[in-house]
Design a protein around this nucleic acid. Structure first.
Lengths: 191, 191
DNA sequence: AGAATATGCAACATCAATGATGCAACTTCT
DNA sequence: AGAAGTTGCATCATTGATGTTGCATATTCT
């Protein structure tokens, strides 16, 4: 994106990455953690963090940008507008889970603070909405289902599933989608 | 609980209540809000807050204690061990939603910080687990369902539904339980 | 009215987090 | 080797939140 420094560029970028990863690890555990704690977790002096990120806000923004990028890519990779709804649902879920497990904090904050990230998230939400609409038309979702509620339930399940931090995201996704579509009941006594 | 002050007791208690309510309102919107903001929201000087609560920690603990009490009462009122599982599920859900809508922050933090509150929450979790076990035995939940996953899905849905802040908790509970048991799909193409 | 209690206001002390800077030491590229 | 760049360390200023206290002023109970 920039042509500022040629030499030693890889070193600096590696440090930036290390800090971003450490920040996610620390902040997901305690959103109020200090820059000192983040620096320590990254195995770096606090001043170094401040050299790379002008302010705490800038650091969080960078995390949000990074996570948002991965998020968008995760959705793209599933081709949710061209693949059959049910398949796309599984694929999107598995891909997004992978990102959300590693960047849960950054993704949650992205909505609130960063302007660009918010735009990307809004775009993804639209795509999600379209996917759900297609799923309903295809008979995957019931015809009488409230799409807004459906999307919120889906997000809630993703959030919950991501807490497992299981590396088998395929299995997580399978269980999640199964629960979303079939629920957990037998159907007895429910009219 | 205490016999310290007889006169003017009602005044002080009213102030305490006002502060607790304001704190919940403010902190649910921004967990990092200052005592100043809380005091302002309560229509009270910051010093008054500090007179009633020795520290920020004490304030949060008081919120947790208050919310936890209401939480336990909400579960009790549904008689989850004696009522038929499905009925109890609806009733508990509606009651808990009522509390969670008004005390979402206090209930979430309760688990982490306060020791007594944690005990109550643990007790409630046990009751929830038993209720789910009964539901499975009664054929309300499928026999092959993982109870741990079921409970987490249930919590996630409650958390999500509580965001609606709708005052019709009966309707919310109905939709929530319906989603939990039946899911949102038609069952087509799912083996 | 008088006593007890509660609150607002102003002021103060403390403390932790943030952000900036200069300097020496080290690594990497040419 | 020399230049450029990066980091660690020590240090300092600033800021915002926290918690305390004294005093004047209601408010309420008896």
């Amino acid at each position: 994106m920039s042509g500022t420094t040629r030499a030693l560029r890889s070193d600096a970028e590696r440090t930036v990455r290390t800090i971003l990863v450490a920040a996610e690890r620390v902040l997901s555990g305690n959103p109020a953690a200090s820059m000192e704690q983040i620096a320590e977790a990254a195995g770096v002096a606090r001043t170094t963090v401040h050299r790379r990120f002008a302010s705490r806000e800038a650091l969080v923004a960078a995390m949000a940008a990074w996570a948002t990028r991965q998020f968008a890519e995760a959705v793209d990779a599933a081709h949710p507008e061209t693949t059959p709804p049910l398949v796309a649902l599984y694929q999107v879920t598995a891909n997004v889970l992978r990102v959300k497990i590693d960047w849960g904090f950054a993704m949650s904050r992205a909505l609130i603070t960063d302007p660009d990230a918010a735009a990307v998230h809004a775009r993804v939400e639209e795509r999600c909405e379209r996917l759900f609409a297609r799923a309903r038309e295809a008979g995957v979702l019931r015809a009488d289902v409230d799409l807004h509620w459906a999307r919120r339930v889906y997000y809630a399940l993703i959030h919950e599933a991501a807490q497992a931090r299981d590396d088998d995201t395929e299995a997580l996704a399978a269980r999640l989608v199964d629960t979303l579509l079939r629920g957990l009941g037998t159907g007895q006594g429910l009219g």
